[in-house]
Amino acid sequence: MKLRFILVGVAALIGATPALSQEVGIENKARAATYDVMKGKKVVYMPQTMTADLTIAWNDVLQHEAKDLGFSLEVRDINYNTEQGARALASAIDDKVDLIVLQNSDVQSYAKLIEKAKTAGVKIIQLNMESLRQSDAYIGADWQGIGEAAGRAVVEKCAAGKGPSTKVAIVDGVPTAPVDEFQVYGFRKILASHPEIQIVSQQAANYDATKARAVTASVLQQHPDLCASFGIWDSMDAGSGAAVKEAGKTGQVFVVTSGGGNQTSCDKVQEGIFSLLISYDTRIQGTSLAVQVAEELQSQLPAGSQHLAFYTPNTLITKDNIRPDSCWTMKDLPYAQ
């Protein structure tokens, strides 16, 4: 009896073995459907330039995604030319592409075209610069939040009794650029609750490091006890930091800047040229963008039916918390080369 049971058991095991050893898996039907929806869709990417680290990184993300998901991607570099951008945008709308990933030149220029795209049923994701006219989504830096973060850091260093003085300088880019002004607004807003902190200078350096250096050198002559310098763009603020360094005031003057987290700026944090780098990490922006593109391509909702926004989080990088991967380099982007 016992033997029979054993034999049956062994036979059952033998019978079952093929099923166990040759597991073929299960097809994910949802995945196939998802890919089918996105396959063959047309996406146009319109950056302001194709030489800036940010726009190259976004391009890299989109190229990868296009290859993976099977949608077609066309890049239209407008090279800081708003008129050319308007033409490219209009033609993309006329072509009835499925999605436009648009980096606005400013808040105003493309407002009408964004409206037109909505009527034509073309979806638009705005990147890093919000137009007055909202479209399906905005993915980008939280400009005002950057200014506020800078303001909080400066208050920390320069409030009464904390720093060498309560004097603060602002180095603006161009005072008509919204990205700059959102930052300055956020910065001043935080400082407003600390009336003892004086803004002794607010000068525009036109995104030029050499001018930023000249301005900051001049301000340092007037106010040798300056406590902090807040600039709106790392590439320009390299000049402010250099002026502080030349004046031998590294460590005294708290130099705050912001940027997309390129390694060149982390290097400057390490050299002490920047005291605080507020990074709107391009890697996070890229990931967020990729998710949003996939979502827009799958969504059945008509263009313009919702206005989503994701303000990418800011990373505060200082000499004390910097890590080898705090920033990224172009070499990390296989498509960039």
Binding site: Y80, N206, Y207, A209, T210, R213, S235, A238, A242, K268
Partner: peptide, 18 residues
């Protein structure tokens, strides 16, 4: 001199009014 002074250069100065 610019590179030495600012520890680097940004090619965007081409589009400036310099």
């Amino acid at each position: 001199v610019i590179v030495a002074s600012n520890s680097g250069i940004n090619t965007r100065i081409y589009s400036s009014t310099m």
